[in-house]
Design a protein around this nucleic acid. Sequence first.
DNA 1: TTAAATGTAATAACACTTGTTACATTTAAA
DNA 2: TTTAAATGTAACAAGTGTTATTACATTTAA
Lengths: 136, 136
Amino acid sequence: MNNTRFATVIHFLTILAKSPDQWLNSDWIANSIQINPVIVRKELGLLQEQGWVISRKGKDGGSMLGVPSSKISLADIYKAVKNANVLGKKNLNPNPKCSVGKQVNTALDKLFTETDEVVCAALSHKTLKNFVEQFA
Amino acid sequence: MNNTRFATVIHFLTILAKSPDQWLNSDWIANSIQINPVIVRKELGLLQEQGWVISRKGKDGGSMLGVPSSKISLADIYKAVKNANVLGKKNLNPNPKCSVGKQVNTALDKLFTETDEVVCAALSHKTLKNFVEQFA
DNA sequence: TTAAATGTAATAACACTTGTTACATTTAAA
DNA sequence: TTTAAATGTAACAAGTGTTATTACATTTAA
């Protein structure tokens, strides 16, 4: 992860969790994190797909949480935005004529998967609710 | 990590570990992974700084492991190439006028650090020797 | 009917990664 | 002493991914 998507999305969810049952609009959310409102609407689309957020179009529209914050784990959030393995990418064309090149990606697949699972296991014990409780 | 550096570096180290006490040159290593030899020499520079690899310039030069493969943990390798937190980057300018914006990066610092430590703890139990033993 | 919101496409700006060329320097061996 | 073959490294190019921005069709409450 070399991007801000996890930080951005958990920021949104925290704001929504702190104002339950209120329609917050993308300009307001964008202002809290000082990023572009179009990015906000794109990421909110992802959160809607997950069923975590409900949005309403039109005048006085906006977004709110669709499930209790205790039902969203940080592992769920991570999986929703993750676009690479923790240990990065594999090289695409290791040389099959070399004994290491021939087998390395199988070994790395195993290691990369195990490492990702360690992260998910650790994050699965934490919920959005726990995270939000840190905020005054 | 959205790059191939971990995969690349562990590939090098595996090759060097399989041919102890031989000077392997960067063209040979590059060919095994099918990447550019200049990248190989750059990354080998990093491994030299760590004390893991010794290189010799000039005719019949090359590189070899400088320590036993059992002394290099995968956590050490990860730390040497890591350039971002597991959960990515924080947003640079959250709005201090917003109660979430004001506190979010402190909360994220803690979470990001904890998550990185989980990965390092898991990788610290694995050594380069363990990894190399998978190769016929 | 209108004002204000979402959804989304297209594109630009920026940053990071990887590849490539070139060459000075080093060093073992002929 | 010369030479061939290697590293080390700078400069630049190409490719990829991220984030910002503009524009606008669509939706909807008031």
